[in-house]
Amino acid sequence: MNLDPLNFLGQTLALLLLAPLLSGCIKNWKAKLQNRRGPRPWQVYFDIAKFLRKDMVISEHASWVFSFAPYVVFLTALLAGLMVPMINAPAPLRLFGGVLAVVGLLALGRFFLALGGLDPASAFGGMGSSREMTISAIAEPAMMLAIFTVAITAGSTDLSQIAQSTQSATWKLLNPAHVLAFAAMFVVLLAETGRIPVDNPATHLELTMIHEAMLLEYSGRYLAFMEWGASIKQLVLMTLLVNVFFPVGLAGPQASVAALGISLAAYLAKLLALSAVVVVVETTNAKMRLFRVPDLLSTAFVLAALALLSTFLFQ
């Protein structure tokens, strides 16, 4: 059955539509945990729609990089998302290098995000970019090591194959290497999506911002794509976490509609469970001091390194 164009289209739509909803859900649950009603989960849709229709005000110091960056951030997140299995494996897009390509695409997006923060020559943007780079310098290797761990166990760098291989032998889920890698990836998730304790996504304090600082100069359409791209990246990382490390319920190729339905339900359930954990972590912790964040990420790196070692030790 030639599922591919349908698969491609379906996953693209899912990424585009589910990402803002997920951000909105997390905001809503954080609010609920603070005993208030909070914005509706679909509020982010309204925000993005409004930004798309608004005019733009651009600093006179900005160059083509400023205008180019939002599209790069958006597209790299989307492409990376298409490579990660969501409802069924294999994922619609297969690029050479598999998981390395995913990391590379996200890194490209981050690179342009940081350049976009530097371009308008604002002090806050510059500080945000430098902080983002400091964090990613440790977060990225941690992420790669964690993914390599599962890749080695599965014998391939193709994410879909990793997911299927892990699925076929469920005892692998309790493998020490697997657990350590999952823990490392969870910390990286918090860092990459700019959540407490690494960064506060709801802050208005420019001097403490990391991710938000790079967006301060953006407006209108560009801002819409930046925000959308950021939420897609969040969805991609969370999907990576739930579907590659816990591919329970993931439908295989040539799956029946019923199997796809189960897969969708399992995927959403896992996603919501992970979001709940993120919300609880955010609500019960204070934000770390900036120069302590590399310490946290180094811990993630060490966990990932240990995970990798464990694959050799426990083979």
Binding site: R36, G38, P39, Q43, V57, H204, E212, L215, L216, Y218
Partner: peptide, 20 residues
């Protein structure tokens, strides 16, 4: 939390470029 302006989609932002 008593008033919760955010539930109406009204929010105070840091950057004037993000503001309406």
């Amino acid at each position: 939390i008593g008033w919760d302006l955010g539930r109406f989609g009204i929010q105070f932002v840091a950057s004037p470029r993000h503001a309406d």
